[in-house]
Design a protein around this nucleic acid. Structure first.
Length: 681
RNA sequence: GGGCCUGUAGCUCAAUCGGUCAGAGCACCCGGCUCAUAACCGGGCUGUUGCUGGUUCGAACCCAGCCGGGCCUACCA
């Protein structure tokens, strides 16, 4: 029986462009959807831009244009990137749509009727100049516990304590640089505790979640009373105004998942389908693909909302890990913060599709893009093995025909057809790595076959032309079988190969029956080897592109340094040259650097000032730098700073760096030629 | 501090719910071949399956402890 399946990926936020980390999810989903469609299932893939929230409002304001313009531009850019990566949605909508507003209203009414909504006053910091309430990340001040300066609204990165933004000393809004005031406003809360037992049940049964995720929820949230969910935001806010609470807006995380339904609605309207067949039907399976960071919303709030509003619950929420590049978090300074666009400018999307597929399994683990491995894998698997089968056999029969009956191949084709079941199961289980392994095994056997038959020898004997043709018919059929199995991952290769053989490659069952008698067209290269120079170029371009594009800057605007940093940290009071010279800044060389056990942010550095003078310095740069990358480089240290006792030892100085903290830390270094021990004047 | 995950050949990973495997691919070495995008075929190489104990007739797979790595949390997620 044909399954009916509705698939979603998380909605990309309209605040920034896509990078290769985002693509893990969209490619994972796209491959799965293509697979289901090939199998003949009724499957649609819907998504949308996530457009609401304070961040969008503020960014639009900074860019001096309307939110609508901003999100329209971003939506176009997102869809362009998706299309070029071969990610095919049946519908790509927007959360800022009428269909979404209407559906939000429906869900809302249901929540109201169920008696789950409650009003309560919330006290928050308010930026009077900008006229907005400030989320924690928009406030900095002095930590009330340890007096560290420039800490964010809700926690101190120095002493690790947490607190309310209201307790912050000398708070400053990062938006306007002014001192925020304390204001209260009514907020609406959803009491989801009443759905606790439902959520216990739903999360732990029915294979709705990967076991580790179910386990995580059980230990973290479901073990206690569920806190009420603050679901409204007072004006000004970019979003939908709540009909029965004028002046208040639905929090972006309320309307975002409803965007899945709205996007489906838009698709239904265009196709003449009924929404209820997809969202209120026992016969439809709903699959959400998400990253591990948003599990909370999809596995607790979302099912609660759906249940209350009478929609179907997801059949499964499939969670994936994050992407690292060369074993580390994507980093702008290393050039590994690669935007989708930058990749597309240099390399074939098929490479990344295959590489991700070869590393994606069903478990929630981070996957690594190892650039050397990437090149090896593409070159040897796709070019050396798969495409090679066609490359080495098609030429013997091109502009001719395949044999009229399928020759004896010693059971190779049949074995490949049987392997299809196992491969299909691997796809269906989201274990693409396994599927790729199995397919490559088939490719190895096909190459072995060609080698054994030696068409280049047979060819020399005119009487053996029939044998050559039979042998190539086998090889090309094995090739076709393999490419059919790879079609979800490599649709373009599949198309090109179909042209070569003048046959369909887009149904899974095509792998079960050999082609006979069809014409073979002229052979053209189906895929190129990876050019290492292009990979280097991506890294180079990403170093600069990341600064221009990835930051909350410029949608198609020229680079312009924004005022954010200066506003976040206004200039200090005037000082004299004498004040300045009290601080002795010196060039130093890092001689060793290592992780500090149990420290979240610190690295322990040993720096040399030359002449055998060394200092031990603890620096809060762990999230931004790997120790190995630091050894040998020159830095600038405050050399006459009083030694400070820290939890992990004594720090005899300070390494200078810029940036707000966390992963956004940028060490200062002198231009080449400077020597350790030299003073900075 | 709490929680989750993880530690298998140089690298990336496999080993059906403890009973032939200690394996595959890449890399490397040797040989072969020349149809193919320096591709392909054959062969070889490295492992005390993190360490230490325990359970068992038997453990890479179970339990405990230790060491190492990663991730998530720490009261409006």
């Amino acid at each position: 029986m044909t399954r009916r399946i509705l698939v979603t990926s998380a909605l990309p936020y309209a605040n920034g462009h896509l990078h290769i980390g985002h693509l893990v999810e969209y490619l994972q989903t796209d491959i799965w959807v293509r697979f289901q469609k090939m199998r003949g299932e009724r499957c649609i893939y819907v998504c949308a831009d996530d457009t609401h929230g304070t961040s969008i409002m503020i960014r639009a304001r900074q860019e001096g244009r309307s939110e609508q313009e901003l999100i329209d531009d971003m939506s176009r850019a997102h869809q362009q990137d998706f299309a070029e990566f071969g990610i095919e949605f049946d519908n790509f909508g927007s959360t800022n749509s009428e269909s979404n507003r209407k559906l939000c209203g429906e869900v809302w009414s249901a929540l109201r009727q169920a008696g789950l909504v409650e009003e309560r006053s919330v006290t928050q910091l308010f930026d009077a100049k900008e006229g907005v309430f400030l989320a924690d990340r928009f406030v900095v001040g002095t930590c009330p516990k340890c007096e560290s300066k420039e800490q964010y609204g809700d926690h101190c990165e120095k002493c690790l304590s947490t607190y309310s933004p209201m307790d912050l000393k000398d708070p400053v809004s990062t938006l306007s640089g002014t001192k925020p005031e304390v204001r209260s406003a009514p907020h609406l809360f959803v009491k989801i505790e009443s759905l606790h037992s439902f959520l216990d049940e739903w999360t732990s049964t029915g294979d709705h979640l990967q076991p580790e995720m179910a386990n995580y929820l059980k230990g973290h949230f479901l073990s206690d009373e569920l806190r009420d969910w603050d679901i409204s935001r007072p004006a000004p806010y970019f979003g939908f105004e709540i009909p029965d609470a004028p002046g208040n807006y639905w929090y972006v995380w309320f309307d975002a998942p409803i965007g899945y339904v709205a996007s489906t609605q838009d698709w239904c309207d265009a196709q003449g389908e009924k929404l209820d067949d997809w969202w209120r039907s026992e016969d439809t399976e709903i699959f959400h693909f998400i990253g591990k960071d948003i599990l909370y919303f999809h596995a607790l709030f979302w099912p609660s909302m759906l249940k209350t509003a009478g929609f179907s619950l997801p059949r499964r929420v499939q969670v994936h890990g994050f992407l690292t590049v060369d074993g580390e978090k994507m980093s702008k300074s290393r050039g590994t913060f690669i935007m989708a666009r930058t990749y597309l400018d240099h390399l074939d999307p098929a490479y990344l599709r295959y590489y991700y597929a070869s590393r994606l399994g069903p478990k929630v683990v981070d996957i690594d893009l190892d650039l050397e491995d990437f090149q090896n894998k593409i070159n040897s698997d796709l070019v050396g093995k798969v495409v090679n089968i066609a490359s080495r056999s098609a030429k013997f029969v091109q502009r001719g025909h395949l044999s009229e009956t399928y020759p004896d191949d010693g059971g190779l084709f049949q074995a490949g057809a049987e392997a299809g079941n196992e491969i299909a199961k691997a796809y269906d289980d989201c274990d693409y790595a396994k599927a790729m392994r199995l397919v490559m095994g088939l490719a190895d056997r096909a190459n072995g076959y060609v080698d054994e038959k030696k068409p280049w020898t047979l060819k020399k004997d005119p009487e053996k032309a029939g044998e050559v043709r039979d042998m190539c018919s086998v090889a090309l059929n094995l090739y076709r079988q393999i490419v059919v199995y790879l079609t979800p991952v490599l649709p373009e290769l599949s198309n090109d190969s179909a042209n070569l053989l003048g046959a369909s490659f887009d149904a899974w069952q095509d792998a079960g029956t050999p082609l006979v008698g069809t014409a073979v067209n002229e052979f053209k290269h189906l895929m190129k080897r990876v050019d290492p120079k292009k990979v280097q170029a991506i890294l180079e371009n990403s170093k600069t592109a990341a600064e221009d594009v990835a930051d909350h800057q410029a949608v198609g605007k020229p680079t312009e340094d924004d005022g954010g940093p200066l506003e976040a940290e206004p200039l200090a009071a005037e000082c004299t040259i004498d004040d300045f010279t009290k601080v002795d800044l010196r060039v130093a060389r890092v001689v060793s650097a290592e992780h500090v056990p149990k420290a979240n942010k610190l690295l322990q550095l040993r720096v040399s000032l030359g002449g055998g003078v060394e200092r031990t310095v603890f620096a809060g740069i762990k999230k931004a730098y790997e120790p190995e990358a630091l050894v040998g480089r020159l830095v600038v240290v405050v050399a006459n700073l009083r030694a400070r006792e820290m939890k992990f030892g004594t720090s005899e100085g300070m390494v200078t760096a810029a940036g707000p903290g966390g992963a956004e830390v940028f060490l200062l270094s002198p231009d080449s030629g400077a020597k350790p021990g030299q003073r900075v004047h």
